[in-house]
Design a protein around this nucleic acid. Structure first.
Length: 661
DNA sequence: AGCGCCACTTAGAAGGCTGCTG
DNA sequence: CAGCAGCCTTCTAAGTGGCGCT
């Protein structure tokens, strides 16, 4: 990044700056458990600030590639048609079908698409509501509750210590949760097993509790087998039976999946109440395995218009509360028992409420573009501040900006897995190297971020940043905060004073989008396949910046090998055919195919452990992609599937080819 | 200043669906 | 014509950040 260079130069000019000695600012590690410390925003004189306890909080794949269907065998000399269907699936014309049928099918799709377009609420052309008001009218049917528990058949038994035990219904239900998971790694983990067993025992009758004392003596074999059989059976249903199920599901969606918001029918994102089960916290979560209880209507708060038809609670039940709060976007909420946090029923991403917010998010990021130079200059300057807190803020901001780190709110210890973001980094998460691999001032990051995804990076930084980091780490030990004078609130307060609406996370959005735009500018190619590879590479650059990882697909090696094999076949054919003059057309087609596969192979290989979807969905201003498609004459559905096109309808509609982020 | 709560976005995994291929 | 690869959807956990209260 260019701002980096100028920063480096500046630091060289002014090498020997005064470093404040600040004997008090360090908090020594307090035993093994880390302790949150100090947050004093800078007192007038910084040198003798005393550490104060930081507060604790109680808080509870899409790859954008074209469908492989578009790469297909060509038959005869006639060019095969590929029709893109509304759902993003492509349907190749069957040889059997007559021309008319094909034509009719295509006409139907076009019509359907037009119909849908006509139905679309073009909210982005309407005037916005006054601040804080999210809707004027809201009507819905309430959430959909999962089916109740079906007791085990008599021939499926649970065994304790080798003897069959007929469990009470509540205990049996929870036992089945565990049985369904036994081949998952979770059930081998000590914490998971202990939490499960503790919560399971709470569901048992007194007698059961007295009998069942040891999880290792429990035999869930028959329960597990039954579950496997059920899954199998569902898979083997006949076409007709599957259709029946599908229709039944559709009926539920039709009834519960939509609401009416200000005269428009909008899709709800998650209208189903989460079914009970065992809590699956990520990473080393201290609460993994705990029982996530069944939610009753009595737990659920309904939010809707006063004048609307209030949703009926299930027979024999009542709602916890019905309220009419138009300053929030949720339709229903409940408190979950494991973390004590709130869960919400909200609208789908293609709704006005979500879309408008999303649009706004990108507008704030674009605004940052206009003042980012000044902000960077300021934090470079702040690196020299006499106030320790200001320096820490400057270094943190440098990380957030340069490395797209998350803000790093504090978390309550013991409630969640030990993960950190920028402000919550601890000294053990970075290693300073005066030189490393021929580079100077290298910071080695190694920590677990959101979802326990490891962030590992070796980054050369400016001398001044490096020197500050050394200072921050003096007299500290493992468990101590790197930025002991900083937290996200003070950081964000500072940021919002620099630009309205500016917070730490805006930098991620800004840097992601600007990176995409820059990369797309650089990578220019000839044919569509190569253009798409360039797009994916630009997308990938962003995903790497944001550390969006995925587990390599289980089928990766196999599918790669398959692709290589196909390419080999293609090459062999070319070798043979190229000497036969009259096969010109076949040769040409084969070459095209080969190129396509080569591009695909490169793309797949580079994408092995990178998740493109998260950035595409959340960080990249869709208008950049829409404009790129227009300029490059690439069909939009090559990079956005139907869901994405719906979500970004506002951008697709308003973006011209000359859009600049 | 700091706490506690609340609302809303961001995240990867798992599961489902579909259309290609052998 | 079934089996399965790969895309898409669903699910829900895990973040961010604002606000009001003391």
């Amino acid at each position: 990044m260019d701002f980096e260079d100028s920063a480096d130069r500046r630091s060289q000019v002014n090498v020997k700056e005064e470093l404040e000695e600040d004997p008090d600012f360090v908090t020594k590690g307090k035993g093994k458990k880390r302790k949150r410390k100090v947050d004093n925003t800078d007192a007038p004189s910084s040198t003798s600030e005393a550490p104060l306890p930081k507060k604790k909080r109680k808080k509870a794949a899409e790859e954008g590639q074209e469908n492989s269907a578009t790469v297909k065998k060509k038959i005869k000399g006639k060019k095969e048609k590929v029709i893109k269907e509304e759902g993003g699936h492509s349907v190749s014309t069957k040889k059997k079908k007559t021309k008319e049928e094909i034509e009719a099918a295509r006409a139907l799709k076009v019509k359907k698409k037009e119909e849908e377009e006509k139905q679309r609420w073009r909210w982005w052309e309407e005037e916005k509501y006054e601040d804080g008001v999210k809707w004027k009218f809201l009507e819905h049917k309430g959430p959909y509750f999962p089916p109740g528990y079906q007791p085990l058949p008599d021939d499926v038994k649970f065994y304790y210590n080798g003897k069959p035990v007929k469990l009470s219904l509540p205990a049996e239900e929870v036992a089945l949760f565990f049985a369904q998971m036994v081949d998952h790694e979770y059930t081998t983990k000590e914490v998971f097993r202990n939490n499960f067993f503790k919560d399971w025992r709470k569901e048992m009758t007194l007698e059961e509790r007295q009998l069942i004392m040891d999880l290792n003596k429990c035999d869930f074999g028959e329960l597990h087998a039954m579950h496997i059989k059920k899954v199998e059976a569902r898979k083997n249903l006949s076409k007709e039976e599957k259709l029946v199920n599908k229709e039944a599901n559709q009926k539920i969606v039709d009834e519960y999946g939509y609401c009416v918001l200000d005269h428009h029918r909008e899709r709800i994102g998650n209208f189903k109440i989460e079914p009970p089960g065992l809590f699956r916290g990520r990473g080393d979560h201290p609460k993994q395995g705990m029982l996530k209880k069944r939610i009753q209507p009595e737990d659920v708060i309904i939010n809707c218009s006063k004048g609307s038809r209030i949703p009926e609670p299930p027979a024999g039940h009542r709602w916890k509360e019905v309220r009419h709060d138009s300053t929030v976007t949720w339709l229903a909420s409940w408190t979950e028992n494991v973390q004590g946090s709130c869960k919400y029923v909200m609208l789908n991403a293609n709704s006005k409420l979500k879309g408008e917010k999303d649009w706004e998010k990108y507008e704030v990021a674009r605004k940052l573009k206009t003042c980012v130079d000044a902000i960077r200059a300021q934090y470079q300057e702040d690196l020299k501040s006499k106030q320790m807190g200001t320096r820490q803020r400057a270094v943190a901001l440098y990380f957030i900006d340069k490395l797209a780190l998350r803000a790093g709110n504090e978390k309550e210890e013991g409630e969640t897995a030990d993960t950190v973001g920028c402000c919550s980094l601890r000294v053990e998460h970075i290693t300073l190297h005066d030189t490393l691999d021929g580079q100077k001032c290298v910071v080695e990051f190694d920590f677990l971020g959101k979802d326990c995804i490891r962030y590992y990076n070796k980054v050369p930084v400016t001398k001044r940043v490096f020197k500050n980091l050394k200072l921050f780490m003096e007299n500290k030990q493992e468990g101590d905060d790197l930025f002991d004078r900083l937290n996200t609130q003070t950081l964000n307060k500072h940021l919002s004073s620099l630009m309205p609406g500016l917070t730490a996370k805006v930098f991620r959005t800004y840097n992601a989008s600007i990176t995409l735009q820059q990369q797309l500018k650089e990578l220019v190619k000839e044919n569509v396949a190569e253009k798409l590879l360039s797009y994916n590479r630009a997308n990938r650059a962003v995903a790497i910046l944001c550390n969006h990882q995925r587990a390599p697909p289980k089928t990766f090696e196999q599918s790669m090998a398959n692709l290589q094999a196909k390419m080999f076949t293609c090459k062999s054919i070319l070798c043979v055919f190229s000497v036969v003059e009259k096969k010109k057309k076949a040769v040409q087609r084969c070459e095209e195919q080969l190129l396509k596969m080569e591009v695909q192979a490169t793309d797949r290989e580079e994408n092995k452990q990178i998740a493109l979807s998260t950035s595409k969905l959340n960080y990249l201003d869709p208008r950049i992609s829409v404009a790129w498609c227009k300029n490059m004459e690439v069909p939009l559905d090559k990079i956005y599937n139907k869901t994405l096109r719906d979500k970004f309808a506002w951008a697709i509609d308003m973006t011209e080819h000359d859009f600049v982020f």
